[in-house]
Design a protein around this nucleic acid. Structure first.
Lengths: 299, 299
DNA sequence: CGCGGGGGAGACACATGTCAGGACCACCCG
DNA sequence: CGGGTGGTCCTGACATGTGTCTCCCCCGCG
């Protein structure tokens, strides 16, 4: 169509205040250009930044992002996914949610899906984005060993691969005899309890590698209670590099996951799969990085 | 229709794997049962919790929530709202975003809208939800005065009504001569700078009321640098009661906004306005609460 | 025989994308 | 000058999946 006509039509549209109706368009096109992102916990800053990267990239592909919030409740997960499916989203992103319920598994067979932050999903045509947290653990341990630490303890969280990474790294440094592990939920209080347990052992660990920053915060609390100075008496490393860790007042050495990059990877995988749903499942593993701050030092 | 038929139809639907198509339904009904929530900053934990409350209540009214993320960029705001309008959302929630651009103002005239966290919007048919931050400031000052403080300084943030509340409260206690104010952006570093400026005055303030928790964190940093003990040498009060403040390791006295409640209020207002768009604009003001922790004490 | 309720069938509308068909004009070539 | 060619533009038909409405049939009951 000629440029002249084109401008005339756009002009008329503007004068009439016409706005295309995405609902009708979706109906006839058979696709909505919508992607549903289901998040286990909106408060987790990891997800917030991930979503920034995701939205940014999806936008480039002409896709819009819907956010659903399951608040860790499987019933909400199913409901939110059901809602997405009724809306006929073109794709799904599952954040911190493993597709285990029947509804979710069925959904992944209908709809292109990417899972983020969960390993060991073996579903046909479901892509995965995770950080290499064995490597992350190794970075943390290497850093502590460089500072002369030997008695390095670990507080294990929900991601067992981090613990494995810790064990592997300790053995690589021939520190197997010094391995100490406590388990904890991802709360500050649980981290504090676990740290108190570790710090009451004889001989005391000189460093603690926590499964994540919140737990590490609990370690800092425990250290303060016991009158231990950080990093002089105890070095602490967290994981996730949340803004808690970055705060000048806390200044926690932490392993950083490239969150925006992960969001962009997920977007790329999903766009690709929307284009061709038959592709085989792919695993995209991103490399974490150690951010050194003032909570670690020489023995 | 008879119960028998009804069950037979539902059964058949299940067997065929039928799922109603929300797109087609929206087209014919002329409403989508979708609400667009436009957020200035997903990382702000205030918004995250607000959204929890919002979604919870909207769900009860059969409405679904879409989240858009403007990242403080007016261009993104317009774009996201345009997307919502094309999708024919039934309502809009603006979080930390004042409708000043032409696109946004126009949108509010088409679509039922609630603005959260911004005062002084005078648009026809736009409801507002805010906390009473003059009261919040008063709670903070009263608490400090109860502890015998007189030289109470304030670090002003973007919400000027908090500063007004501080001024009013100080005068009410006849502490007008002790009024000290510094302005700062909402960052830890800016808070630190402002605190350093305040703490270098003679005589030094014995308490600082910060415009929000992030700024208060900067105050704590500054105090540590100057060798001042909190709360012995300096009391600090924040605003927003983020999880930063709640952390055992920081333990910051802070003014709490009932975030979930605000979310629920916004949902109620919006549902109501969707039902009857002609209603006059309403202002819903919620009452904040002081959460006392270990960053405040007697002079 | 009339009446009322359950159930089925069909038309219409929603706003758009896609496609086919045809009118019209300008241009080129023989 | 006539016919063919190609581009522009308009028109109309059809499809998407659902809610609403009307019409009609059939059966049971009084």
């Amino acid at each position: 169509m000629s440029e002249h006509r084109r401008q005339a039509v756009l002009q008329a549209a503007r004068e009439l205040g016409y706005r295309p109706n995405a609902v009708a368009r979706s109906l006839v096109e058979g696709r909505t250009h919508l992607v549903g992102a289901l998040v286990a916990d909106l408060h987790n800053p990891f997800y917030a930044e991930f979503l920034d990267g995701l939205q940014e990239s999806l936008h480039g592909d002409g896709l819009r992002m819907l956010i659903g919030n399951s608040q860790w409740d499987p019933a909400f997960e199913d409901e939110a996914v059901e809602a997405f499916l009724e809306l006929r989203v073109d794709g799904l992103v599952l954040l911190g949610i493993a597709p285990t319920s029947e509804t979710l598994i069925e959904a992944t067979s209908y709809t292109p899906t990417v899972v983020v932050g969960e390993r060991d999903i073996e579903l046909e045509g479901v892509d995965i984005v995770v950080d290499d947290d064995q490597l992350g653990a190794r970075l943390a341990i290497d850093h502590l060993v460089d500072h002369g630490h030997k008695r390095i303890a670990h507080i294990e969280g929900p991601r067992s691969s981090r613990c494995e990474g810790y064990l592997v790294a300790m053995r690589r440094h021939s520190l197997a005899p010094y391995i100490m592990v406590e388990a904890a939920e991802s709360t500050e209080e649980d981290g504090r309890q676990a740290a108190l347990a570790l710090l009451s052992r004889e001989p005391r660990p000189t460093a603690i590698f926590a499964a994540n920053d919140v737990v590490a915060l609990g370690v800092l609390s425990a250290a303060a209670e016991l009158g231990l100075k950080v990093p002089d008496d105890l070095s602490v490393v967290g994981y996730d590099n949340t803004h808690l860790a970055a705060s000048h007042h806390i200044s926690l050495t932490s392993v950083d996951q490239p969150r925006r990059t992960m969001g962009r990877s997920a977007a790329a995988l999903l766009s690709d799969r929307i284009g061709d749903p038959a592709k085989v499942a792919r695993l995209r593993q991103v490399t974490p990085e150690l951010i050194v701050r003032r909570s670690t030092g020489p023995v």
